[in-house]
Design a protein around this nucleic acid. Sequence first.
DNA 1: GAGTGGTCTAGACCACTCC
DNA 2: GAGTGGTCTAGACCACTCC
Lengths: 258, 258
Amino acid sequence: MNPVTPNQTTSDALGAAGAPSPTFSPLYQQIKGLITQSLQSGEWKPGEMIPSEVELANRFKVSQGTVRKAIDELAAENLVVRKQGKGTFVSTHHEARAHFRFLRLVPDEGVPHYPESRFIEVKRLRAPAEVARLLDLKSGDAVVYIKRVQSFDNVPTIVEELWLPGLIFKGLTAERLNEYKGPMYGLFESEFGTRMIRAEEKIRAVCAEEGDAGLLKIAAGTPLLCAERVSFTYGDKPVELRRGLYLTERHHYQNDLS
Amino acid sequence: MNPVTPNQTTSDALGAAGAPSPTFSPLYQQIKGLITQSLQSGEWKPGEMIPSEVELANRFKVSQGTVRKAIDELAAENLVVRKQGKGTFVSTHHEARAHFRFLRLVPDEGVPHYPESRFIEVKRLRAPAEVARLLDLKSGDAVVYIKRVQSFDNVPTIVEELWLPGLIFKGLTAERLNEYKGPMYGLFESEFGTRMIRAEEKIRAVCAEEGDAGLLKIAAGTPLLCAERVSFTYGDKPVELRRGLYLTERHHYQNDLS
DNA sequence: GAGTGGTCTAGACCACTCC
DNA sequence: GAGTGGTCTAGACCACTCC
């Protein structure tokens, strides 16, 4: 109920009573951890409002300022969204602002929009060593494999392969994917209780191979961007491996260095 | 001396005395603006310590908390770096942490390190329309054009062209560039008083043309990453256009989506 | 010990939303 | 008018650095 004890000195809030240095963690970080736990456990679901700052301050027996600082960081990490006058809400992939954080391919001309998906293949298989390594699984563990083509205005532009941990994405079928409108991360969040929080991408230039060239209706050998992505959920746990091939004739990968 | 007046109500701090809504800007944002001005004007130079929070609070006649909030944002934007117990310092490109914010090409194996530069060409020319547009110049204005090859462990990996506003980079010669060790942004900062703060990149896959293939010692037609960058200094003023071609056989462009 | 940034509090009041 | 997040203050004390 109240895992954090009120205190005058910061160090008193720590489990250990002794020297502060080695394990020092400020109160607001501890509160942040507790809020994150509630997000992860589903106490507050994506799209829902979390308790107000005053309420959380009462619950944790700390000042509103300390709760604010905790929530500030969660908002900076896109785990929650603050709306003045309304409240603080759990982030969700079911809104436009989340979509373009993970889709970086935008048209050279005109406004960014979301592509249409066509699923080529959906199957379960045993994780190859490389896939297992990146997803933190054991080689041979079950994974769901997905291959799809994405089109902007009916122009095929992306060929994408995905590998997902079989245990989490049990019951993910081509039918489910086809029924679902919108970004896959929305489906993953709603149907499989797995929210992608951040991702790492490695980008290279490659030549289109025969098969992929066919899917994109381009000549084999056409240069393509290859983006290999590992996505993480709470606790920095990897839960998705993606390999996308992007045709960059009329689109580009947008990136801000800041 | 003291452009910000102390006040009880936030709105009193505004220039306009009337309705708060349309021009509302919190005190800490105004303080942030004043600090930014001092950074831009060179009152505090890259690498130097800025006045302490208490001192700034006295100078601006606000509380330390308000100064802290202003500096928090400047630190988040990488304009300053806080060091507990020491002070707050103006960011500089003369340190490792800044280098890799703008160099995203890292080796597939081993630790990231900085490449060696060989300058192919340095000349002044009149800005083509496209360059002028991106640098916010008039077509035909003087620009400095630079072409170089960068090598990791003596393997040529990057061919890069740069266009810089001639007015700012007056006196930038091949000799100056060759003498200088380290990232160009360090030279730009120290010798031309221009600090790059953020950049936008558009990335595509292309085929190596004859000339560039020769410089990279690869076959024409090899797929390359093409990164077009516009860099900005204070006030979101564009001051550099770059077009880099990256060989991604043993390196990749690293990006975090968060 | 003096100076720096970092944390925490309690309290006041503002901007904004919803009813 | 009540509830939300947002700003601002003054003051206390902590962690860390340098001397």
